[in-house]
Design a protein around this nucleic acid. Structure first.
Lengths: 210, 210
DNA sequence: TCACTCTTGAGACTGAGTCTTATATTCAAG
DNA sequence: CTTGAATATAAGACTCAGTCTCAAGAGTGA
């Protein structure tokens, strides 16, 4: 079985974290760093996979063994946060209002995102549709992870088979994150990301009645 | 000036709708029909642009003069609805609560989407990431059109420069549309799309407090 | 040492999207 | 009706992302 992109062969926990695995992780993050640097220097479209591979010292073929797509070299690290997010939500108290539970759960993500380098990546994403699209795909994966968790918190109120509400809530929360992130990038990082997010969440759950 | 994909050279209204223009529109929609049929028959990935071009009786190069991407052959018609949506929102009474205004504005879109053929396209989209991604890009364009319109309805409450709320509201409404559409496709079209959308909108603006 | 497995590099191959060039086709004057 | 500018087209070269196959390393366990 050959390793597929985004797998670390740790489907079930081998007691020792696996030496093979650590190596893979290390290479992955190193290549990602190189790629991101090149993208920021020359632009995303202007940087070819061959250039990244050459600069990082591996073959083109190997690059695609570490990343499914060119975009994933920048966004690959988002993969894992979906599970963390889901877990954070599942740990919120059962009787907490869904929207509030979601707001708290997102703390995990906000923590990671508000690194100053995210500013550059954010700007690049705004100029690069394919990157933005791939970014959203990642978030859609998060969304799907959140849906069952949210659904459980709604069961009291008659959920007929295809209930649009859990997905709507998950997607709306993600929408708030997106809006907050956008505003944060626009402000050059001067505003507080967490505050912007809270503001967005509040505006959506109780829209100002003009 | 050569015609670019998605332009009909009617940037300003030439009084006669333009014979050239009508021809272009006609070809465009005919090619789109052929493409959609082939996609549904053989699958999106299994259908090449060459096949579409051959079947539709034009050259590969010409295909890309009508559609910027292969995905646009299915999604191109969404282009125009953004403006309609924005217009519909702008016509809602000034004192109406934003969220309610949005809900009504989306009627325009719901009308168009709830065609039975949308079911097949919806199913195909769920199996085709690139298509889904492109679809979301279209919606992002709608979102950006709605933002200024929503911002105007919030001005009373101190909008400091980078205000995340308008975008959050626009994106959240789109999220509801997405969730409703998903549920609708899951139900094989048996459920009422408009009803599902209303339900989603209600759940988000006043989440059930478990 | 002998398998066995996993990783790598090399390179062929498909297909999307861009671009250039040359040939119609349309349309507006004269 | 003809000339000339603008535009639409086909043809095909070209770049690059992503897939696939194959053969050669490199680590591990007997």
């Amino acid at each position: 079985m050959a390793a597929t992109p985004n797998s670390s062969a740790e489907t079930t926990g081998d007691r020792p974290p696996g030496l093979r695995d650590r190596a893979r992780r290390a290479v992955r993050s190193e290549v990602a760093a190189v790629a991101t640097r090149l993208f920021l220097e020359r632009g995303f479209a202007q940087t070819t996979v061959d250039q990244i591979a050459a600069e990082a010292g591996l073959s083109r073929a190997s690059f695609f063994r570490y990343f499914a797509t060119k975009e994933d070299a920048v966004l690959g690290h988002l993969e894992g946060y979906g599970q963390q997010l889901r877990h954070a939500l599942s740990e919120r108290p059962r009787q907490e209002p869904v929207w509030e539970a979601l707001r708290h759960a997102f703390d995990v993500v906000l923590e990671v995102i508000s690194q100053p380098e995210a500013l550059n990546i954010g700007r690049m994403m705004n100029e690069t549709p394919s990157l933005k699209a791939r970014h959203i795909e990642k978030w859609l994966a998060w969304q799907e992870l959140l849906v069952p968790e949210i659904a459980e918190r709604l069961t009291e109120s008659a959920a007929h088979s295809p209930d649009p509400r859990p997905r709507a809530l998950a997607a709306a929360a993600l929408a708030c994150l997106d809006a907050a992130l956008e505003a944060w990038v626009d402000s050059e990082g001067t505003e507080d990301l967490r505050g912007l997010f809270t503001e967005a969440m509040a505006a959506v759950s109780a829209p100002v009645h003009a």
